[in-house]
């Protein structure tokens, strides 16, 4: 039952990174759609929409991701929907990412000078065109750095799905650790794999940020 820590064990941990990446990608894609909806609702002219989006953000940024995971996990099941770990993990992380990306992108939309929107209004552009051709492209430029920064947070956040039993990098590490009892080796390796994933992204985000800071320096 007990194994020693060898190449097979290291390989098991390293290959589990694919599930971390896939889960991150799904949550990021879902979060991008949800976050865009939240961001647009936050800057909408309709008061109810603005407040609904704000409450969503407050709740999801004001409670632990671990609790959100537990609630989605047990909640979907008692509502009679057959779920699996993939659905629970992806749903919870998508909601989490929607709230954070929504708030980040709202900031970017609001950072586009109001004059831009006003001028295009004066030119007779409707809301949809105004957003699509004038505001959002400028906001998108500003948003790249913080969005990449959030991606790092999201990749790290996927580690919590190990607590509900989803097998990704962290859980793979635990499984191997439970079989080999080499915690120093195992968790160092797991940490190193996360670092290899996240560090380049962090560097990229910082590079984008400083480039943007130079571009907008007055």
């Amino acid at each position: 039952m007990f194994r020693s820590f060898g190449p097979n064990e290291a390989l098991y941990i390293i290959t589990a990174v694919q599930w971390t990446l896939l889960l991150s990608a799904i949550a990021f894609a879902g979060g991008a759609v949800g976050g865009m909806a939240i961001a647009l609702a936050r800057v909408s002219a309709i008061k109810t929409l603005r407040y609904a989006a704000l409450s969503f953000i407050r709740v999801f940024q004001g409670t632990p991701l671990l609790m959100q995971l537990f609630l989605v996990y047990f909640g979907l099941s008692i509502m009679g929907v057959g779920i699996n770990l993939w659905v629970a993990a992806a749903a919870a992380l998508t909601l989490h990412a929607s709230a954070y990306l929504g708030e980040i992108w709202r900031g970017c939309i609001e950072a586009v000078p109001a004059g831009q929107s006003e001028a295009s209004y004066a030119l007779g552009l409707k809301y949809g065109d105004r957003m699509r051709y004038v505001v959002l492209p400028q906001a998108a430029k500003i948003s790249v750095a913080p969005t990449v920064g959030f991606l790092v947070q999201l990749i790290k956040a996927t580690s919590l799905t190990s607590i509900i039993g989803f097998v990704e990098l962290t859980r793979a590490g635990q499984i191997i650790n439970n079989a080999t009892f080499q915690p120093l080796t195992v968790f160092s390796l797991v940490a190193a794999v996360y670092f290899v994933l996240c560090w380049p992204l962090s560097m990229w985000a910082r590079h984008l940020e400083s480039r943007f800071a130079v571009a907008t320096a007055r």
Binding site: L76, G80, V87, A91
Partner: peptide, 20 residues
């Protein structure tokens, strides 16, 4: 209401997993 909501969410997500 919650069940209806969950049902809608499940459909939206394209899941067809039935309760076991």
């Amino acid at each position: 209401k919650l069940i209806a909501l969950a049902g809608a969410a499940a459909l939206a997500a394209g899941m067809v997993a039935g309760p076991a």
